[in-house]
Amino acid sequence: QWKVGDKCSAIWSEDGCIYPATIASIDFKRETCVVVYTGYGNREEQNLSDLLSPICE
Protein backbone atom coordinates (compact mmCIF):
# COMPACT_ATOMS: atom_id res chain seq x y z
CA GLN A 1 0.00 0.00 0.00
CA TRP A 2 1.27 3.45 -0.95
CA LYS A 3 1.83 6.17 1.64
CA VAL A 4 2.73 9.87 1.60
CA GLY A 5 6.43 10.38 0.95
CA ASP A 6 6.83 7.13 -1.01
CA LYS A 7 8.92 7.28 -4.15
CA CYS A 8 7.13 5.96 -7.22
CA SER A 9 6.96 6.36 -10.98
CA ALA A 10 4.01 7.99 -12.69
CA ILE A 11 2.88 8.61 -16.25
CA TRP A 12 2.75 12.36 -16.93
CA SER A 13 -0.48 13.24 -18.75
CA GLU A 14 1.24 15.79 -21.03
CA ASP A 15 3.49 13.34 -22.89
CA GLY A 16 2.58 9.84 -21.70
CA CYS A 17 6.14 9.18 -20.51
CA ILE A 18 7.05 7.65 -17.15
CA TYR A 19 8.89 9.85 -14.63
CA PRO A 20 10.12 9.38 -11.06
CA ALA A 21 7.86 11.06 -8.52
CA THR A 22 7.04 11.31 -4.82
CA ILE A 23 3.56 11.00 -3.31
CA ALA A 24 2.54 14.34 -1.75
CA SER A 25 -0.98 13.42 -0.60
CA ILE A 26 -3.46 10.56 -0.80
CA ASP A 27 -7.26 10.52 -0.93
CA PHE A 28 -8.16 6.95 0.01
CA LYS A 29 -11.91 7.52 -0.53
CA ARG A 30 -11.35 8.50 -4.16
CA GLU A 31 -8.34 6.16 -4.53
CA THR A 32 -6.27 9.02 -5.93
CA CYS A 33 -3.11 10.82 -4.92
CA VAL A 34 -1.09 13.89 -5.84
CA VAL A 35 2.45 13.21 -7.01
CA VAL A 36 5.34 15.65 -7.41
CA TYR A 37 7.65 14.80 -10.29
CA THR A 38 11.28 14.55 -9.12
CA GLY A 39 13.48 17.28 -10.55
CA TYR A 40 10.56 19.09 -12.19
CA GLY A 41 8.30 20.12 -9.31
CA ASN A 42 5.13 19.57 -11.36
CA ARG A 43 2.20 18.22 -9.34
CA GLU A 44 -0.49 16.01 -10.79
CA GLU A 45 -3.37 13.91 -9.52
CA GLN A 46 -3.04 10.21 -10.29
CA ASN A 47 -5.10 7.12 -9.56
CA LEU A 48 -3.36 5.00 -6.92
CA SER A 49 -3.84 2.00 -9.21
CA ASP A 50 -1.84 3.75 -11.97
CA LEU A 51 1.30 4.30 -9.88
CA LEU A 52 4.35 2.24 -10.77
CA SER A 53 7.32 1.08 -8.72
CA PRO A 54 10.23 3.55 -8.53
CA ILE A 55 12.62 3.56 -11.48
CA CYS A 56 16.20 2.65 -10.59
CA GLU A 57 18.40 5.56 -11.60
Results as ranks from 00 to 15, higher is better:
54 P>D: 09
6 D>N: 00
46 Q>V: 10
13 S>Q: 02
51 L>S: 02
54 P>S: 06
21 A>P: 07
42 N>R: 14
32 T>P: 06
44 E>Q: 07
44 E>A: 02
43 R>L: 11
13 S>W: 10
22 T>Y: 10
31 E>L: 13
7 K>P: 11
47 N>A: 09
5 G>E: 06
47 N>Y: 13
28 F>N: 10
34 V>C: 03
23 I>R: 01
28 F>D: 10
22 T>P: 02
48 L>W: 07
1 Q>A: 10
35 V>H: 01
24 A>Q: 10
37 Y>S: 04
2 W>R: 14
33 C>L: 04
2 W>Q: 14
54 P>E: 09
22 T>M: 07
18 I>A: 03
33 C>Q: 00
20 P>H: 10
9 S>E: 11
50 D>Y: 07
16 G>V: 07
12 W>E: 05
10 A>D: 05
45 E>W: 07
15 D>T: 10
21 A>M: 04
2 W>C: 14
1 Q>P: 02
14 E>Y: 15
36 V>R: 00
34 V>F: 05
47 N>C: 10
30 R>V: 10
18 I>E: 05
16 G>M: 05
43 R>G: 07
22 T>V: 14
49 S>M: 08
30 R>Y: 11
3 K>G: 14
31 E>V: 04
55 I>A: 09
44 E>I: 02
50 D>N: 05
43 R>F: 13
23 I>N: 04
24 A>G: 06
47 N>W: 12
7 K>I: 12
38 T>C: 13
42 N>M: 14
3 K>T: 09
57 E>W: 13
39 G>V: 09
7 K>C: 13
27 D>A: 00
2 W>K: 15
22 T>Q: 07
11 I>S: 01
1 Q>G: 13
9 S>P: 03
30 R>T: 12
51 L>W: 06
37 Y>A: 02
8 C>H: 00
30 R>M: 12
11 I>T: 03
46 Q>H: 13
50 D>M: 06
18 I>Q: 05
45 E>D: 03
7 K>F: 11
48 L>C: 15
40 Y>Q: 08
6 D>R: 00
55 I>K: 04
32 T>D: 04
48 L>Y: 04
27 D>Y: 00
24 A>N: 05
10 A>I: 09
37 Y>D: 05
37 Y>I: 05
21 A>L: 07
53 S>D: 14
55 I>Q: 12
53 S>M: 13
49 S>N: 09
53 S>F: 10
49 S>K: 14
16 G>W: 09
24 A>S: 07
47 N>P: 07
36 V>S: 01
18 I>H: 02
51 L>D: 01
42 N>F: 15
23 I>A: 03
10 A>T: 04
6 D>T: 00
19 Y>I: 04
1 Q>N: 13
46 Q>S: 02
17 C>G: 10
51 L>A: 06
16 G>N: 06
5 G>M: 02
19 Y>N: 02
3 K>C: 11
31 E>Q: 15
3 K>I: 13
57 E>H: 12
2 W>G: 15
36 V>N: 06
22 T>E: 10
56 C>G: 13
9 S>K: 07
36 V>G: 01
7 K>G: 11
44 E>H: 02
50 D>H: 04
11 I>N: 05
37 Y>N: 03
51 L>N: 02
17 C>P: 01
36 V>C: 00
3 K>L: 13
45 E>N: 04
3 K>H: 13
44 E>C: 05
39 G>M: 11
8 C>R: 00
13 S>F: 06
37 Y>W: 05
52 L>P: 03
9 S>H: 12
29 K>Q: 13
41 G>P: 06
13 S>R: 07
12 W>L: 07
53 S>V: 11
10 A>W: 07
51 L>G: 03
19 Y>Q: 02
28 F>Y: 14
34 V>L: 03
5 G>I: 06
51 L>F: 02
55 I>S: 09
48 L>S: 02
25 S>Y: 09
11 I>R: 14
14 E>R: 15
10 A>N: 01
13 S>Y: 09
38 T>Y: 10
24 A>D: 09
22 T>K: 04
53 S>A: 14
55 I>H: 07
46 Q>N: 05
29 K>E: 14
34 V>R: 01
37 Y>M: 06
45 E>F: 07
32 T>A: 02
17 C>H: 15
55 I>G: 12
21 A>D: 00
43 R>T: 13
19 Y>T: 01
29 K>A: 13
57 E>N: 11
9 S>Y: 15
56 C>T: 14
41 G>Y: 03
25 S>E: 10
44 E>L: 06
52 L>Y: 09
4 V>C: 14
16 G>I: 09
57 E>P: 12
42 N>L: 14
14 E>L: 13
18 I>D: 04
42 N>P: 06
4 V>R: 00
20 P>R: 06
35 V>I: 12
11 I>K: 08
19 Y>E: 04
30 R>P: 09
3 K>N: 11
38 T>N: 07
17 C>R: 15
36 V>H: 03
2 W>T: 14
34 V>T: 06
34 V>S: 05
32 T>F: 09
57 E>S: 14
15 D>R: 08
1 Q>E: 12
16 G>S: 03
53 S>N: 09
37 Y>L: 07
17 C>S: 01
41 G>T: 06
53 S>P: 15
28 F>W: 15
40 Y>N: 15
42 N>G: 09
14 E>H: 12
38 T>Q: 05
7 K>H: 11
47 N>L: 11
28 F>L: 11
14 E>N: 07
56 C>L: 15
29 K>R: 12
9 S>Q: 13
28 F>M: 12
25 S>W: 09
46 Q>G: 07
57 E>R: 07
37 Y>C: 10
6 D>E: 03
20 P>A: 12
25 S>N: 04
6 D>F: 05
44 E>G: 05
16 G>H: 02
37 Y>G: 01
30 R>E: 10
57 E>M: 12
29 K>G: 10
13 S>L: 08
53 S>I: 08
21 A>E: 03
32 T>M: 10
5 G>R: 00
47 N>Q: 08
7 K>M: 12
18 I>N: 01
36 V>D: 02
5 G>K: 00
42 N>V: 15
2 W>N: 15
28 F>Q: 10
38 T>D: 15
55 I>C: 13
6 D>V: 04
